[in-house]
């Protein structure tokens, strides 16, 4: 029997109530993250990864709303918190980093202001000791001469440096969980590798759990312990990363894995999943993948339940691969 996980998302549903109709951006997503564990949250663009992240940190804006499911974090259901209690969790016990480092830092505030305010939002400390924590956080993410950097403005930094600063801000209060929403997508390949490496190192050192959102399976392969695949706002399959990548059970994950270039399949043409992601606006019942699925049968017009085909593996499909 494993200890209770740090985070258990169960049947999460987050819908947008737009004038054109209901957009089911997240519609039944479940996963768990243990303390210090790294989860890769994978899916195509528009599959609801970011909205899942925003739901966990309580940053869903109208017309979006969490309409169902639970988010149990350290024994507490976050969906039941009031605004003040949410604020105490946000940036303190759960932190988030965004995709575009050029946009995440406020252009008119100095770096020290932006880190110190994060510290003082949660701890009643002097500006000096907050600054000391800020300096320490910058050093941890590999920023040299932190004192000089603290007095600079974001525009004086490159993209990679800005993302390091954002990571330092996420780390500064020693959170239990960091949600990283494609934080390397906007960066050069070499910088991507560095950030990925450092992020992993820092989380391992401090025992911080990490949800790494990405559409890139090859990133997840080297980074995560567990992986959770999403499609059109729904949970598809999850399990230990090596298992899922070696032996995907769901036709969608299989398609995703076969479309990634790999060493042992060099020279062979890459496979593509035929067709396009369905529109989430007014998406009805049934498996959302059935239009593109080679294994689909008449039964797939109903929604498959989540099953546990093997210990630690979960799946939502009527006709999984064996």
């Amino acid at each position: 029997m494993r200890a209770a996980p740090l985070l258990a998302v169960d049947g999460l549903r987050m819908h947008f109530f737009t004038k054109a109709g209901v957009v089911k951006a997240v519609d039944g997503v479940s996963f768990t993250v243990g303390r210090g564990e790294i989860l890769g949250l994978v899916g195509e663009s528009g599959s609801g990864k970011s909205m899942t992240g925003y739901s966990i940190i309580g940053l869903v804006d109208p017309p979006g709303r969490i309409v169902g499911g639970s988010i149990v974090f350290d024994g507490q259901d976050l969906t039941r918190l009031d605004a003040a209690a949410w604020r105490a969790v946000r940036g303190n016990r759960i932190a988030m980093i965004f995709q575009d480092p050029m946009m995440t830092l406020n252009p008119v505030l100095r770096i020290d202001t932006q880190i110190v305010e994060a510290v003082r939002a949660h701890a009643d400390v002097s500006r000096e000791s907050a600054l000391a924590r800020a300096r320490e956080a910058l050093v941890r993410v590999g920023i040299a001469s932190p004192d000089e950097r603290l007095r600079a403005y974001p525009h004086q930094f490159s993209g990679g440096m800005r993302q390091r600063v954002a990571i330092a801000i996420a780390l500064v209060n020693g959170p239990d969980l960091i949600i990283a929403d494609e934080p390397t997508t906007a960066l050069d390949v070499t910088i991507q590798g560095q950030i990925l490496f450092e992020m992993q190192k820092v989380c391992r050192e401090s025992g911080t759990a990490l949800i790494w959102i990405t559409h890139d399976l090859s990133v997840v392969a080297g980074l995560a312990d567990e992986v959770c695949v999403m499609y059109a706002g729904r949970f598809v399959e999850s399990g230990p990363v090596a298992d899922v990548l070696d032996r995907p059970l769901h036709p969608y994950s299989r398609g995703l894995i076969e479309s990634v270039p790999s060493r042992n399949a060099r020279g062979q043409p890459l496979r593509q999943i035929p067709g396009m992601t369905p529109s989430l606006l007014g998406l009805g019942a049934g498996c959302p993948f059935r239009e593109r699925c080679a294994s689909a049968t008449a039964r797939c017009a109903e929604s498959p339940e989540v099953t546990e085909p093997a210990p630690g593996r979960r799946l939502r499909c009527f006709h999984p691969a064996h």
Binding site: V89, R90, M96, M103, N106
Partner: peptide, 15 residues
């Protein structure tokens, strides 16, 4: 994004 990030830090709405 910088406003969302500021909120993600847990800053009070007034700030």
């Amino acid at each position: 994004d910088y406003v969302k990030f500021a909120r993600a830090k847990g800053l009070p709405q007034s700030r």
